[in-house]
Amino acid sequence: MRRIGAVELGGTKAVVGAAVMEGTGRPQSIETVRIPTTSPEETLARCAETLRELGGRMGGLDAVGVASFGPLQLDPHRPEYGSITRTPKPGWAGAPVRDHLANALGVPVAIDTDVNGAALGEGRWGAARGLDSHVYVTVGTGIGVGVVVGGRPQHGLVHPEGGHLLVRRDPARDPYAGHCPYHGDCLEGLACGPAIEARVGRPATELADDHPVWDLVGDYLGQMAANLLFALSPQRIVIGGGVGGRLGLLDRVRHHAERHIGGYIDHPVLTQGLTGFIVPPGLGGEAGLAGALALGWAHLETVSA
């Protein structure tokens, strides 16, 4: 039985929690506190103070997991390991998230991206439970993609940046040039919430379910799903987020993904309209914090192995 602290560090708020965990069972009771994301110094100090308080009620923490917005430096051999790298959020570039919390609390701190954390949580306790490989996609203000293989979040040269996959845009059908300041009409540039609003002049939340833009978004996310299948061959793709959870959108994504796959891959899970392959989250809005808990637990498993 281990006492794990968790931080879901977002661009506007941080959710801090702690739970007593045993084995791979989903924690039944997680006490949480929400903290506004202001400056790195103030936010991380308040996170550490809250973790110290929550952990004190349990007799102290054994480890902390952090699922953070990024980009992050996740190479443990680099001196800036656990820090935020290039980010448009003012003041946060170079913020030493992991080191700050580890030094303040005196316990091991595991860190990964928010989407890798959510992917790990969905694999432990949610819609991808029991699978060896899966992908978690969040579609909202931006688009993030977390990849888990063999029960572990994937890193390489950097962490996955699937939101910037290049997709095919038909200018006659969709003249919008794209929202992304780096790539224009990449996936995020075409299908995130701000891209939808810029294209139609209204927030996505105000659009009817049959608005034509949803078929465009479904097509771009369907292309993403087909590309992920071809490149990574995951057993399941979980799609969530404020835009990703839009009623009826997953059906459009499945339809277009099946069209883009074109019958090339023959597998039983790719039948019945891909309903078993592209699915909604099992943890809902708790995926990020659950992922942070899973990161802390996984770190302790690695150390004790």
Rank of each mutant, 00 (worst) to 15 (best):
residue 18 A to H: 04
residue 42 E to C: 03
residue 41 E to M: 08
residue 16 V to S: 06
residue 46 R to F: 00
residue 22 E to N: 13
residue 58 M to P: 03
residue 21 M to P: 01
residue 25 G to K: 15
residue 45 A to P: 01
residue 28 Q to D: 12
residue 49 E to S: 14
residue 55 G to I: 11
residue 60 G to F: 13
residue 62 D to W: 11
residue 49 E to K: 14
residue 67 A to C: 07
residue 67 A to H: 05
residue 41 E to W: 03
residue 54 L to M: 06
residue 41 E to H: 12
residue 18 A to F: 06
residue 28 Q to L: 14
residue 67 A to K: 00
residue 16 V to Y: 01
residue 57 R to G: 12
residue 68 S to A: 14
residue 66 V to H: 08
residue 68 S to R: 04
residue 45 A to G: 05
residue 66 V to P: 05
residue 69 F to A: 11
residue 60 G to V: 13
residue 36 P to I: 00
residue 23 G to L: 05
residue 36 P to T: 00
residue 62 D to G: 12
residue 66 V to R: 05
residue 26 R to N: 13
residue 30 I to Y: 07
residue 66 V to E: 03
residue 51 L to M: 05
residue 16 V to I: 14
residue 26 R to S: 15
residue 29 S to T: 13
residue 58 M to D: 07
residue 59 G to A: 07
residue 26 R to T: 15
residue 47 C to I: 09
residue 34 R to N: 12
residue 47 C to K: 04
residue 52 R to Y: 08
residue 62 D to L: 13
residue 35 I to V: 10
residue 35 I to W: 01
residue 47 C to Q: 04
residue 31 E to N: 06
residue 66 V to D: 05
residue 44 L to S: 00
residue 23 G to W: 01
residue 33 V to S: 07
residue 59 G to H: 02
residue 59 G to Y: 02
residue 67 A to M: 05
residue 37 T to I: 03
residue 54 L to V: 06
residue 38 T to I: 00
residue 66 V to Q: 04
residue 46 R to C: 01
residue 17 G to I: 06
residue 53 E to F: 04
residue 23 G to H: 03
residue 37 T to K: 07
residue 25 G to I: 11
residue 60 G to E: 14
residue 56 G to I: 14
residue 30 I to N: 04
residue 52 R to G: 13
residue 45 A to T: 08
residue 39 S to L: 02
residue 57 R to F: 00
residue 39 S to M: 03
residue 62 D to R: 12
residue 62 D to V: 09
residue 26 R to D: 13
residue 24 T to N: 14
residue 31 E to C: 03
residue 50 T to Q: 09
residue 38 T to M: 04
residue 29 S to I: 10
residue 42 E to N: 11
residue 33 V to H: 09
residue 28 Q to K: 15
residue 51 L to H: 10
residue 68 S to T: 09
residue 64 V to E: 12
residue 41 E to F: 08
residue 42 E to G: 09
residue 65 G to N: 10
residue 56 G to F: 07
residue 29 S to P: 01
residue 18 A to W: 03
residue 62 D to S: 11
residue 68 S to F: 04
residue 34 R to G: 09
residue 19 A to E: 05
